[in-house]
Structure formats: structure tokens, C-alpha cells
Amino acid sequence: MRDLKRWAVALEVAALFALWELAISGLKLANPSFVPPPSAIWTAFTGMLADGSLPEHAWFSTQNAVAGFLLAVVVGVPCGLALGSSRLVSDVAGPPFWTAYAMPRIAFQPLLVLWLGFGAAPKILIIFLMAVFPIAINTMDGIRGVDPSLVRAARVYGAGRIQVFLKVQLWAALPLILTGIRMGVARAMVGIVVGEFIGGSQGLGYLIFRRSADFDLASALALTLLLVVIANVLMALVSLARRIAAPWYAEGVS
């Protein structure tokens, strides 16, 4: 059933692209240099692969993304654990955390460039800032939502605090931690792109910006679609991890 659904989606996307191609190349509904058809986008894509510009810029973005995101997980999960398991920590550190979570952190990007220059540092930092709060907040929710009877059962069998934490709470909270990581991936993608839009000279976001400014919209759309594919593959991988780690957990909007 699930395979069938996947095929249906693939067919649907293929149909959309076919219609798009037909509307531009066949019926000439719009200027193809203004609204490039899928065939032109594909040519632009392979062209960028062949001349090495795509691999080079993609490598820059990937390095920053991995660094920023790993940092966000390493910092976000323990912060969430602390916020979720201690009343004191959540009372004192909670309000600033929620404020930071609700605020558009992307607004700091021009200042980050001013402080850290035009290199990789402000990009890594904005990716970190975008991803860390959803990870921490979801981890906190996860720890708070652990069924107290599970904790009590572990205590009855003589588990200490640390054991309860490592063997019960962490596992029970895992699906929400992974939900946070999934949200973090989506936000990190925004961070990658904006970081390179503002004060960048390398990376996929910069390349999109550059090519659009040159009115090479086929290349710009090829790169945008590439980001769509990357984002969906990454999110699907995290969802898969969640399904394996917590098959009982129902999927929601996250």
C-alpha cells in the first residue's frame, strides 16, 4: 500500500512536469527564458554539474550544514533534557528559550556577517541558531511527556536517577527528540540559504542568488529544486529513523 502511494506521488510529480513542459515548450504560454521549462532546467543542472560549479558550491554548503547542525544537536538535546527534567531550570531558562524559539532568528544574519566576516563562520552560526531551538524545545516536551508510571515502574525495580534517565526517560522521549531534529533540519535548510544570500560568495544559496541576478532562471530553478529534493530526502530519513526507533508514534505536522 505504501509502495503504491509512493508510485502515485512520483506519477503526479511527473505529470506536473509534463504539463509544465507542454505549457512552455508546446503551447508557448510564457517566455521560456522567463519561465524555463523542465527540459531547460535539466540542461542547466547537468551544465552546472559538468563545469564543476555545482559540486564546488554544494560542498561549501554541506560542510557548513553538517558543522552547524551537529553543533545544534550536541547543544540542543542536553539543553532540552535539562529544561524538561528540572523545574528550576525550566522556570529560569524557559522564558528566554521560548522567546528565542518564537523570534525570527534569521534577522541576526546581517549582524553575524558584520561580526564574523564573509567566510563560513556566520553561516555555521546561523544554521546552528535556526536548528537548536526546535531541537531543545521538542526534547523538553518529550522528557515532560514521559509516562510517570514508566518512571515509577523503573523505580520499583530499584533504578537510580541516572538509570531512570538513561534507560527510561531518554528512550520514551526519543520520538519527540527526533521530531525536534526533523524540525531542526527544515529550519537549518532555511539557515543555509539565507546565510548564503546575505554576505556570501559561495554555496548553493549564493549560486541561486547569483544566477537569478544574471536572469539565468533555469539554473536558479534547478538549484531550488535540488534544495527541495535534498530537504525532502533528509526529512524522510529522520522520519524513517523515528519509525524504526518508535513505531508506536503517530506522525503529525512538525
Binding site: 522567463f34 527544515a186 535548510m189 532555511v190 543555509i192 540559504v193 539565507v194 544570500f197 544559496g205 541561486i208 542568488f209 544566477r211 537569478s212 541576478a213 536572469f215 532562471l217 536558479a220 530553478l221 538549484l223 531550488t224 534544495l227 527541495v228 530537504a231 525532502n232
Partner: peptide
Amino acid sequence: TPLIALQPTLTA
């Protein structure tokens, strides 16, 4: 998807 990646194209 990071929809903001569309921004330069939309500007064009």
C-alpha cells in the same frame, strides 16, 4: 522545503 530559496527567482 526552504521556500525562501525561491526569493531570487520571484524577484526576477
